[in-house]
Amino acid sequence: MKVELTKQGEIGILKTIGRLDASNEKEFKEKFQSYLAETVYFIMDFSELDFIDSTGLGAVISSLKKATEMDGDIYIANLQDKPRMLFEITRAYKIFEVFDDVETAILALKKEI
């Protein structure tokens, strides 16, 4: 798994590449924790996320929890078919705003800030 952070103003665009599962959820959490020093508003770009399991989703949810505790927020963009199934069966989509592209997600998040 690779996590890349780019910034557009106050918003951090966090691109996750590869698999997010039990083998790397700790690494994801640690990276996210370090990014929180830079901003609390994030778009998680999942366009290249091939696989996510329940521990990976748990890491994403714990990130949302941390961001909202600091009055921030996380939007999700480009959720692919396989990861979407997990968001659906676990009903995680009810707690995230899911957009089909990063640009619109940025526009929507900017309105919230």
């Binding site: 039990a22 329940s54 521990t55 989703l57 748990g58 949810i61 714990s62 929890k65 069966i89 009903r91």
Partner: peptide
């Protein structure tokens, strides 16, 4: 996964 019912992620693990 050493997750107990009080954890936030417990429900996700179960549904998964």
């Amino acid at each position: 996964l050493l997750s107990c019912p009080d954890d936030d992620e417990f429900e996700i693990h179960e549904i998964y």
